[in-house]
Design a protein around this nucleic acid. Structure first.
Lengths: 155, 155
DNA sequence: TATTGACCTCAAGTCGACTTGAATTTGTAG
DNA sequence: CTACAAATTCAAGTCGACTTGAGGTCAATA
């Protein structure tokens, strides 16, 4: 049993069949052939789907993910382009760390309103600073749109 | 000049006026009053908007953000609920670190297809492991939907 | 051989977060 | 006082990523 049908892939990955078809349509994955009408997938599709899921967690669109690691294994993005993405992620990671700290603070701080707490104010300032640095550093960037990220509904 | 009109807020934050109105409609912020028809905002709205932006970066929906730190300053979420959110963020951060490492690897690895590179394979395995742990740890979680996150278009 | 159930295609619908456009209402500069 | 730029409301539209539904196909089992 080297090849899997779509339901098997779905079971292994937790991704809905309709989504898997969608990814194929968009060129992020490829099926190795058909048995009758039914798609057959090789085992490599599992890694590819893991990669897609990962990319979506990072907030990348399917297009962007395809450009970074499409099914052909050849990134359509230049080396600097990829490093750029990695740098974006680094910044995003720092932002999330700040957010996490703020949430924990809100959970633990006894102040009646967190907005009145000096520590919280300070956390906001920090994240604000970071944001301004970004703007300054990137200086008139071309306005990439940054689409949806969802957690897969376990339907 | 203690109060700002919507365009001033928009300028300070980089958030479109229409979005600011949208946030008010959804109850994430409040204007302090009107001059004629025009909304007037106090300075605190800037921090609130920073918080909203931050939350969106974390992939939280407006509803979720409102529950964590609404304009009233009182989280509608229980303490464990908030820690839960923070834990989610921690996991997400680790995932993003893995993704960042993979992207950097793709950028630098000379292998013809990254899928053939053992190091890359290994990175996927790691992220896969992480994911499985999550599933195991949380055991039939109630399927939160996880809406859009966008980078603000500099319109 | 006849059913059956999994899979197929294609069009249309959904969801969140906004944006856009049309018609209307100002505060303020000239 | 009038004109105008800037806000306002409300309805409708957009975008990405899927999901859903109707109607059709086919390999394998009874």
């Amino acid at each position: 049993m080297k090849f899997m049908d779509i339901s098997e892939v779905s079971k292994q990955t937790g991704i809905a069949s309709s989504a898997i078809r969608h990814y194929e349509e968009k060129g992020l994955i490829t099926s190795v052939g058909r048995r009758g009408l039914k798609r057959l997938f090789g085992p490599e599709v599992l890694d590819q789907l893991a990669l897609i899921t990962l990319g979506k967690t990072g907030g990348f669109s399917l297009e962007e993910i395809k450009a970074m690691f499409g099914p052909d294994g050849r990134p359509a993005l230049s080396r600097p382009g990829l490093h750029q993405r990695a740098d974006d992620l680094d910044r995003q990671i720092h932002t999330l760390e700040a957010l996490r700290d703020m949430i924990r603070h809100v959970a633990d701080c006894p102040a009646p309103s967190h907005m009145e707490c000096p520590k919280f104010q300070q956390l906001i300032r920090i994240s604000g600073r970071r944001k301004r640095d970004e703007r300054a550093a990137r200086h008139a960037k071309p306005a990439r749109s940054f689409p949806a990220r969802r957690r897969p509904s376990p339907s």
